[in-house]
Design a protein around this nucleic acid. Sequence first.
DNA 1: GTCTATAAATAGATAGAC
DNA 2: GTCTATCTATTTATAGAC
Lengths: 214, 214
Amino acid sequence: MVAEDRRRQIIRVAISLFALRGFRGTTTKEIATAAGVSEAIIFRHFATKEDLYSAILDGCACEGGVDPFESMAEAFKGDDDRAVFQALGLAVLNFHDENPEFQRLLLHSALEGHELAQMFWDRTVMQTYEFLGGYVRRRQAAGAFREMNPMMVVRAFLGMLIHHSINNNLWDKARQILNISNEQAAREYTEILLRGAFSNAQIKIETNFSSESE
Amino acid sequence: MVAEDRRRQIIRVAISLFALRGFRGTTTKEIATAAGVSEAIIFRHFATKEDLYSAILDGCACEGGVDPFESMAEAFKGDDDRAVFQALGLAVLNFHDENPEFQRLLLHSALEGHELAQMFWDRTVMQTYEFLGGYVRRRQAAGAFREMNPMMVVRAFLGMLIHHSINNNLWDKARQILNISNEQAAREYTEILLRGAFSNAQIKIETNFSSESE
DNA sequence: GTCTATAAATAGATAGAC
DNA sequence: GTCTATCTATTTATAGAC
């Protein structure tokens, strides 16, 4: 196999194993065996095990270039609150469903203090807080959202989504408790975020009460 | 030092290190050094490294005996929805704040496929879903909560809480984005769960609209 | 470009003196 | 109850033949 292909193959195999067992939990021997080569080949392409990890990070850097906010651009302009959150929610849930290894890699990385976690935070998480937080702030000014820290809204929504993904990814039994499609999950979480779990009756009582007291 | 004390000390040290670096990422040598003894002492008290891990689990089993639902018993009986969720929320947030090692240990365990994660799921998570899910079901029957899968409500709420704790625990920068007390966080997440982020004005429009269409 | 063989360091675990 | 010394297996990494 030509050098560049072999290199990419090793990285692909390493991602799977690091995701499964973490950096320290994976041996170069295991990577070599899984790639169907001898251990010496690993060190022919990567000076050290750390270098292999860094090469994975460089790969992630490119993948992260996909704009997660693309799908919500239209809803964003039209101030369609439900569509904005549903689109982002579905994008996040689908991404984690299609890339379960990434989430495990990221969690391992965060726990082990590697730089992937920091990179992901700076690049993706911060961007999401700014983007979505800005939207919430604008909608608060328009009177559609109530007054509260916009970051709180973002944190709450991301919490529901990411926890949902981690549950499905790490615990077999999670789906026994709640087994729904990503579309439905995105819709339900959006509904909870925007109007809560109270019934209309309850909300009417609350709304009447609060208008009296105002 | 007497045997039983030494044993407990080693376990305490091991918890810290396993939480920090994971099971595979921690060496018996490191544990010995941190405990201020030689490596041989570790293996005098625990036949293998795995045995040490199991001993930690047994310790957790006792700690888990604390009833997390105690603080919400009164609110539960009185159908005080806000108090129920706020009390549970505060209990969860405080627990993770006071036991940051436990959360890291649990995450490492879940990723590494050790039994702590499974034990925690069966014992604590399931119990929470049943308890809180049962409450939601009852309040739905009373017309206070709208019709939806009760597990969805629980999942959403736990998601906000646990994600909030993990953020504060694993990422330094999380507090830069959103730095609030546990009391405030429990209150805000409860508010989002029950009545959402929409303003009263928006809810009135929605409520009127939905009563017309009903 | 790939392999076998092996070096060097580190891991878990034991023996035996005090 | 604790230590030093040591054993064995594993892990990262290299050398050199093909």
